[in-house]
Nucleic acid binder design. Sequence first.
DNA 1: GACAATGTAAACAAAC
DNA 2: AGTTTGTTTACATTGT
Length: 665
Amino acid sequence: MMVESASETIRTTPSNQNGVSSLTSQSDGGGGREGGSNGDTNGEISPVDLLHLQQQQALQAARQFLMQQASGLNSPSSNEVKQNTVQVPVSMAMMSPQMITPQQMQQILSPPQLQALLQQQQALMLQQLQEYYKKQQEQLHLQLLTQQQQQQAGKQAAKEQLGSKQLAFQQQLIQMQQLQQQHILNLQRQGLVPIQPTATMQSLQQAMCPSDLQQLWKEVSGVPSSEEALKQAEGLDLSTNSSNSTSAFPKAASAHMPLHSLPNGQGHTPKRDSHEEHSGSHPLYGHGECKWPGCEALCEDMGQFIKHLNNEHALDDRSTAQCRVQMQVVQQLEIQLAKESERLQAMMTHLHMRPSEPKPFNQPLNLASSASLLKRESEAYPEGLPHPPTSAAAPITPMRQGPSVISSSSLHSHSHHPHGVGPIRRRNSDKFCTPIASELAQNCEFYKNADVRPPFTYASLIRHAILEAPDRQLTLNEIYNWFTRMFAYFRRNTATWKNAVRHNLSLHKCFVRVENVKGAVWTVDEVEYQKRRPPKMTGSPTLVKNMISGLGFGSLNASYQAALAESSLSLLNPSLVNPSAASLNMLHVGHDDVSSTVEQVNSNSSCSPTLSPQQYSHHVHVKEEPTEIEEDCRPISLLAHVTHSLPLPSDDRDLEEDLPTEDLE
DNA sequence: GACAATGTAAACAAAC
DNA sequence: AGTTTGTTTACATTGT
């Protein structure tokens, strides 16, 4: 009985893949009103009007600024159908073809890159915004001063108006702030930025309030059409209405989306399809809620939702405004991404990191390649874990490895899988001597919190988990725990990845099952593990050598390595990193190549191959509960001095086999 | 195109 | 009886 799935029922249903095939252009007639002229206001030419004018100019500037950022908008490209609507966790903001989805970004870029990129992004945008706000404020101050002077001058007539003007200014300021928040929000909404729920919620709430949106739109979108101008008078009412109709607005809806729209394709960012009325699903409808920005109205079924949609989100000012805002959000993100991509490309080019020849384009491919490059780097470096004797070749392999390690493949693969969890081939790590440790070490926190699929294969992850364990052995359940503990990503789709884990454990010889008093535990047979890809490099040792020393990589390698090592040491659970683990676990098993290298490790000689896992576990034994990060009471305390030996040379000395258990195999 | 590595799904069976 | 753990098989995708 396939009980298996029973336990993890979850079974990511989203088989619907991504019903949302197309992002059909936001028809919404959006483009329509270009704004500029809002001739609405009155007609006297008083100082007040002058002020008003200035004000408008300021606003104009603001609009332009925003529009500039979104200038890409015009390019209809962004509307093209994205086949692999893959569960883009983020808003479809990134759906533009030339853009990579955040998820893809995540997979392509290493976490640190991602973070850096995002931070840059944010910093940049914030900076811009802040500058702008500053200017605005200054301007307003000036204006106010002027007003005061005028008041003193005795123009009482204008007094009232001035008062209102001041109010207007204030509003403007507020709006500016809102804009700013909105901006930040947008970034977060992408899902690219690990969000602090609390902070985000606030900004979200503030930013997404319908009425705010409306105002925002009015300011941002430039001048209202004549029609709007007419309605403007009613504007206030309208907004109040809106807020009534959707009283509950602010929070959940908006707050959820960004947070949960994750890889699994549940990202429901509103997509305005004109022909959405599809039978089963609607991009704006999910989890029984209306996903219209800022609206979380509950709708039991499609019918009700449609009704709601037509009633509450009909083609009116508010909806249009919201739509516009959304559009801008999307555009801005796209633009920003493009910029960053370009920058990255430039950087890579500059650093001669010819991914695969810097392609003139800046999009995906490059990113992918660059990513792969980076990956390779990481691969090339040692990680907290020791390298197998044969590793001499290992570290290098990656280099000779073609340019595209990850490439688009991983990007597309998803589409085939119902679960957002596409077979992401990050052969990178596991293949050659897992750089996992370093990667992980560096981005430990990142993976823990970000719902990003780690760029490692199951095998490498499992191995890492096991090696990280105090006694280098874990029960299946512990492995599971490790996964969930270390990766936010593995807190979902449990059925899937757990199955994969089991599958990997059984499939790879490198994972040895050892019967223990307390049941069975899994250990890693490093030799086997390394054997996995013998054919590759084995060929030309000389070549290897060359690669190591030659290719300026050597040096880079070293330093980078050191850095990585250090960081990993500090970040990673000490017990894990410490070489002792390595040495320990490699209780030598005298193997050809290995043996040679082993000499260095002699220290451990004590560990006779006879040390069976059981015994082992006996004295160190910690199992039971996922003891996590505790210091393993391991007898051997090499850590002390070895700590920094990580940089290839020493550690490289491979680990040997882990335990004599191989026979079990 | 063959092949290896990897990921996912699923069927089964044995152990808990 | 229901779960968990393991093993296998099948199939798809990618990269070599």
